[in-house]
Amino acid sequence: MAILDLLIQYWPLFLQGFETTLILAATGFLLGVAIGLPTSILETYASKIVRWVAIAYVELIRGTPMLVQLFIIYYALPQLGIRFDAMTAAILGLGINSGAYQAEYFRGAMQSVQSGQMDAAISIGMTRAQALLNVILAQSLRLVIPAWTNEAVYLVQYSSVVYLIAVVELTGIGAIIGSRTFQYVAVYSIIALIYLATTLFIVKSSHSIERRTSIPGLKSSQEQRV
């Protein structure tokens, strides 16, 4: 069978591509958290000007395609003297893009935490910062898990876009093996299956994480599409 032969012959390449995909998705996700969490806090609690900047960032990124953002980082910034290698540009692009979406998810989660929690925290003498850290965040991080799952899946899938700026991840490997064997359909079928399996794994894991961190007595949030 064509597919089996391909797998046996080329599995190191598939593995390599898969590894790169995972690295891209993971670093993009982490960068997204690092950008998104502070942004959501700024969007909600900061002074007017800072809030405006944060909101502008979120709206600009969410309103434009990721590929365009990637092109700007990789092809356009050199015009200003800022040069990144393809892999760095890819991670930056994924991270900055993810950050904007994650900011929205966090913001939604923080707003879902009842306002009474903040009132109670400051009533026992906490400052807003303390309240955020000790009360609001602990709850909103749990609420954001479903959205985070979607984001992780999204990143794994959209990491394929970096193929178009010549980063060799799983989809890129497909092009390479395809051009050698001309078995395009078989090759991409294998790749599709790998992506699918990864997606399913992420979703299953998140359900178990959600169960493990759930607050006793409270029903864990269902498929929250924020």
């Binding site: 009474g116 929690q117 109670a120 925290a121 602990a138 709850q139 607050i215 409270l218």
Partner: peptide
């Protein structure tokens, strides 16, 4: 009125 206990 609504207790506002820290749920977590």
């Amino acid at each position: 009125q609504h207790f506002n206990l820290f749920m977590h």
